[in-house]
Design a protein around this nucleic acid. Structure first.
Lengths: 341, 341
DNA sequence: TGAGGGCTCTGCAACGATGCAGACATCATG
DNA sequence: CATGATGTCTGCATCGTTGCAGAGCCCTCA
């Protein structure tokens, strides 16, 4: 049997549809006697409101979508959890989708038949979509961008200061006395803005220490997965003058790099110190535990959700770059036994 | 400006609403000339179909929900990715929600005002909801259960054979000649059915090897996170006769246990061999890499999605227990240097 | 020539809910 | 007793779309 509708309940309780609706929503005053009768009918028929109909009438769904490249990348999974929590605090639920880092799928989202219209707003962590494409899509559904790319003010955008984060990570390694600091994760092409910002930070730290960057120590990777971190590390170890420290553009690369180092018999941090970015939980339990730059994920999620809801309600300020704080967390991969437990 | 509707487009193109709808959906034959005129109007107004209205009319949304305890538990994140992929193959999208392992939130899902009615079906990985509660909720939205609990035939249920998986893992350790094999992750109370199945498998393996279980070697943990694995391992190491192997009920526990072992200066696997369950990617890159029992996540996702879609379409067979295959993957945490790369 | 059949195109009703305006009964007040 | 205020309850229109039945029109063929 399909679900009972307001009409069914109304017929059974011998009242108008409207009155049943009032009872369900606690709106207009309803006499106790009628209320009881309607309630009985509601229970007997096990009425559940049809949210789709309600949404159509009200013009909103109470759902926002979070679109990330890959859900099984721990950073995104952890961020997703924070977003769900932040949205729930406002009575919103979050639908999560992944693009597989596939530009095709990202653009699908913006296309005519996109399911995006099912949502009151969109949180998008783009990999390849450009600002122009986003602008061209019109202003159907409010959007807040997360963490990637540079959109110079056309959109709400929440991220940490990537240059500063990379600079802090690199400076930490230099502060340990390391002089051949490698970098893993550059992406010197159009869609690699985040990576390029981190490379810039890396170079800044070297410059401030009066060092010149050795281009052979900067390894590019098309994405940020463990395997590529391991491969990059292997290639660095094969250099005539291998590095004594490595700054990885995220924790997964760093974990892969550490795996390669251990396999090659190098000691961490004695031979090579390692630092990442993201502060995923895995890094606390790796051997050795991983020094990292932690963006404040909770803050990212809250600011993003709040901004999106403001945009939905039309109370949003002009699009702005929102920068959330980050901090360096020192663990064994740079401090060795001295690391705080 | 709010989105243009079919009516707006119809007015502009000077045709009926119905014809615009036909053009949009490619339904009835429309003359080339009219089609072009309508298409032009569609483009000019940048028409996007209102999916909510369409869904209301059609009685389906093309969305299913996946509800898991915690999204940032790698197993669930990896499973979610598979589910998204499987659903997409059928034109469905997946909305993901997490319950935080909170019975309250799980039950909310079944309550009167649940958003569950927004979805054509539900994939639920329950932690505390009982079969009775599920039955009591009526048959509003088709449900397929994943991995947890025992529902003896009242619901579609997809899982691996937990007893066999645990038996295989334990037998592997025994096959290495270990004799004091510990178990981390038992949950000897009502909502711990999965854990209890694994304990049963553990005991079976010991029995088949002619060994008696040492109850002190079975450590309970209220949930399956890294930290508890580490704590459990520490307590095991404090025993007068510590174990020479440990079977952890999932990979996170195992990774935590390995962390504790390394910190305590024990060698893996020489002093203590470790095996987990789940085959999360992290275990391939840990030091040492983690031996594990891998459920076929892709198969779980595909079977679950297919079954759910059959239920949605009314073509489903009677509720059934669907068992997916698993296999032991041997890595360094039990095989040491001999492990396959 | 006119009956029949295809092809286009259209209007109406409906999905299930809510906003609005107003009907009706009751009651207090002058 | 008339008036208006108050408190309940109802019917109608509507959200944007699609299903259905049918209206024209043109063509074919007997």
């Amino acid at each position: 049997m399909a679900g009972a509708t307001l009409r069914d309940v109304a017929k059974r309780a011998n009242v108008s549809i409207r009155t049943v609706s009032n009872v369900v929503n606690g709106y207009a005053p309803v006499s106790d006697e009628l209320r009881a009768r309607v309630q009985a009918a509601l229970d007997e028929l096990d009425y559940r409101p049809n949210l789709i109909a309600r949404n159509l009438k009200q013009g909103r769904t109470g759902m926002i979508a979070l679109v990330v490249p890959e859900l099984d990348v721990p950073y995104f999974a952890e961020l997703a959890r924070e977003v769900i929590t932040a949205a729930r605090a406002h009575g919103y639920v979050v639908m999560i989708d992944q693009t597989d880092g596939d530009g095709e799928r990202e653009r699908e989202l913006l296309g005519r038949d996109s399911r995006a219209t099912m949502f009151d707003g969109l949180l998008l962590s783009p990999l390849t979509v450009s600002a122009e494409e986003l602008r061209a899509r019109g202003n159907r559904v409010p959007i807040v961008l997360l963490g990637e790319h540079i959109f110079n003010g056309s959109f709400h955008h929440v991220a940490m200061d990537n240059v500063a984060a990379a600079r802090d990570a690199t400076a930490h390694l230099l502060g340990l006395g390391r002089r051949r600091v490698a970098a893993i994760g550059d992406q010197p092409y159009a869609t690699g803005e985040t990576a390029q910002l981190r490379t810039a930070g890396y170079r800044q730290a070297l410059a401030r220490a009066g060092l010149e960057a050795d281009e052979r120590l900067i390894v590019s990777t098309p994405h940020f997965h463990r395997r590529l971190g391991a491969e990059a590390m292997e290639s660095l170890l094969a250099l005539p003058e291998p590095p004594d420290a490595v700054f990885c553009y995220n924790d997964l690369l760093a974990l892969g790099a550490m795996r390669a180092l251990t396999r090659a018999g190098r000691r961490i941090p004695d031979d090579v110190a390692v630092v990442g970015i993201d502060d995923i939980e895995e890094g606390q339990y790796s051997t050795p535990s991983l020094t990292t730059v932690a963006p404040d994920k909770g803050e990212i999620a809250r600011r993003a959700v709040n901004t999106l809801l403001e945009a939905i309600n039309g109370t949003a300020a002009a699009p702005a770059e929102i920068t959330v704080p980050h901090r360096l967390i020192v663990r064994e991969s740079t401090a060795g036994e001295d690391a705080p437990a």
